[in-house]
Design a protein around this nucleic acid. Sequence first.
DNA 1: TCAAACAAGTTTGTAATGCAAACCGGTTTG
DNA 2: CAAACCGGTTTGCATTACAAACTTGTTTGA
Lengths: 104, 104
Amino acid sequence: MIENNETIPESNDSIDRLIHEPARLKIILYLYVVESADFVYLLRQTGLTKGNLSAHLQKLEHNGYVEITKEFLNRIPRTLISLTERGKTAFEEYRVVIKEMLNY
Amino acid sequence: MIENNETIPESNDSIDRLIHEPARLKIILYLYVVESADFVYLLRQTGLTKGNLSAHLQKLEHNGYVEITKEFLNRIPRTLISLTERGKTAFEEYRVVIKEMLNY
DNA sequence: TCAAACAAGTTTGTAATGCAAACCGGTTTG
DNA sequence: CAAACCGGTTTGCATTACAAACTTGTTTGA
């Protein structure tokens, strides 16, 4: 039923939860400076477990924030990950939002 | 079932998830400037639903970040919420951590 | 007068999420 | 040629955020 005259929550939450999640924030921070990294590198840098990293990367990929390409480097698979333009922009916007919130 | 989490110091320089959650971050931001607010005020300011606000406040209270006192103002209940010293410190530390992270 | 509406929260049910263990296909090693 | 190893992915589980439903008490109004 329709009800309740409570304040309508502002749908404009503005914090991008996809980036906000600490594990993904870490990932993005690395990608932002490196421009391209492979799975193993991120694994070491972030300290996440493999499963965890894999899941987060897939989430980022599904949202178009990162691009994942797989290649073989003399028979060994190699997964390259890079921030897309969209991901880069989203991160920059996220940073602005947080900065304003915490005002510094 | 594992219980208890009293006073686990956020020792490491990792992100304090209790503050990091957007809904609670909002709450804390208001409390940080206002020093004391009532439930209804926070409700309007944050745009959260009542249930949601209630749950988050309880979580903050259980971790000693806020103090909740209930009083009656001519028969009407009034819930006052304020940041504790611990909460204030935690927030300031959180801000430093985020700042460092995003200010590479 | 008393029931219906309202106000201020709390509790409950559920869907989404993060996490690590288990798994998998291929490769190297002993 | 089996066992260990690598680079990931999938699965199962515990936690969480969220809003609906409920609760307790007060005001309104017919």
